[in-house]
Computed example of a mutant assay.
Amino acid sequence: MGVRAAVVVCVTSFLLGSLFTHWIADSLTLWKSPTNDQNLWTAATYYSIIANGPAQIQYAVAAVVLLGATTILWSLRDGRAGNLMFDGGSIFLFCTTIWMYSYSALPTIFTVFKDLPPHPKTDAVPQELQSAIFDLASNNLVCSVALTGVLGLQAGRFWAESADDDDEIESLKATPAPSRAKTPQTE
């Protein structure tokens, strides 16, 4: 596996891990039925902690995203058919994740959850907050599936390239070495 593919896999795995940490909140909303107010308040509190967290964490994640996007685009520059197919799909999925998270998830986190009002866990959750919690959980799920697709495409690329390398090695073994018969020299 090349360095570029390794960087893409590591960045994608890191971002997936970051999204999987949201399972604490998302599992209470998307996967529990019926959803009760206590679960919704727990999810809202979790996202409030993220919204009020240190900015350095957000900068670090943004740097990792930039590294991944740059590496995928750099790999696409090779122009080989395998790169165009696998990296083109990876770019589409990676950019879909960036777009969805940048234009939907992050604004929701920083506008809705920045100043969460104090509340007992037994209070009814306002409808706007419920909607934001469910939308955010859905966005996290879509982003996780898209990043899993990036990993799948990179694995497919690795498999295709290793199969090509195996075929090339076999064809070199099957080709007879050129004979070095001496030709008579004229005097």
Results as ranks from 00 to 15, higher is better:
Gly79Leu: 07
Ser90Ala: 15
Gly2Gln: 09
Leu84Thr: 08
Ser104Tyr: 11
Phe92Met: 14
Leu76Asp: 02
Ser171Phe: 15
Asn39Leu: 02
Ser179Gln: 14
Gln185Phe: 09
Leu141Glu: 02
Asn139Thr: 14
Ser48Cys: 04
Ala181Tyr: 06
Phe20Glu: 12
Ile98Asp: 02
Tyr59Ser: 09
Ala177Arg: 11
His119Trp: 00
Gly79Gln: 04
Met100Asn: 10
Thr148Cys: 05
Thr122Ile: 08
Tyr59Thr: 11
Ala63Glu: 05
Ile24Ser: 12
Leu136Ala: 02
Tyr59Ile: 04
Ala51Asp: 08
Thr111Leu: 05
Ala51Cys: 07
Asp26Asn: 12
Ala132Pro: 01
Gln58Pro: 07
Ala81Gln: 10
Asp87Thr: 05
Ala6Trp: 05
Asp37Tyr: 03
Thr96Lys: 10
Ile72Asp: 04
Cys95Lys: 00
Ala55Gly: 11
Val61Arg: 04
Trp74Phe: 13
Leu136Val: 02
Lys32Met: 08
Arg157His: 10
Phe110His: 09
Ser138Glu: 08
Leu93Phe: 04
Tyr47Cys: 01
Asp166Trp: 07
Ser171Lys: 13
Leu19Cys: 02
Thr45Met: 05
Tyr46Trp: 11
Thr108Ser: 11
Ala63Arg: 01
Asp135Thr: 10
Trp99Arg: 07
Ala43Trp: 02
Val125Asp: 07
Ala105Ile: 09
Thr111Val: 03
Gly17Arg: 01
Lys182Gln: 13
Ala163Lys: 14
Pro34Phe: 01
Ser33Gly: 08
Leu141Gly: 04
Lys173Gly: 06
Arg157Gln: 04
Thr45Arg: 09
Gly152Asp: 04
Arg4Phe: 07
Ala163Thr: 15
Ser162Met: 12
Ala132Asp: 02
Trp159Gly: 09
Ala81Arg: 09
Phe110Asp: 03
Leu76Ile: 09
Leu30Cys: 05
Gly68Tyr: 01
Ile109His: 00
Tyr101Val: 15
Val150Arg: 01
Leu16Gln: 10
Phe94Tyr: 15
Ala62Thr: 06
Leu73Asp: 11
Ala62Val: 04
Ala181Ile: 12
Cys10Pro: 00
Ile50Phe: 13
Ala81Ile: 12
Ala43His: 01
Ala25Cys: 06
Thr71Val: 06
Asp135Gln: 15
Thr148Arg: 00
Val9Gly: 00
Pro178Ala: 14
Val145Ala: 14
Ile50Cys: 09
Ile98Tyr: 08
Asp164Met: 11
Val61Ala: 08
Ala60Pro: 04
Leu116Gly: 01
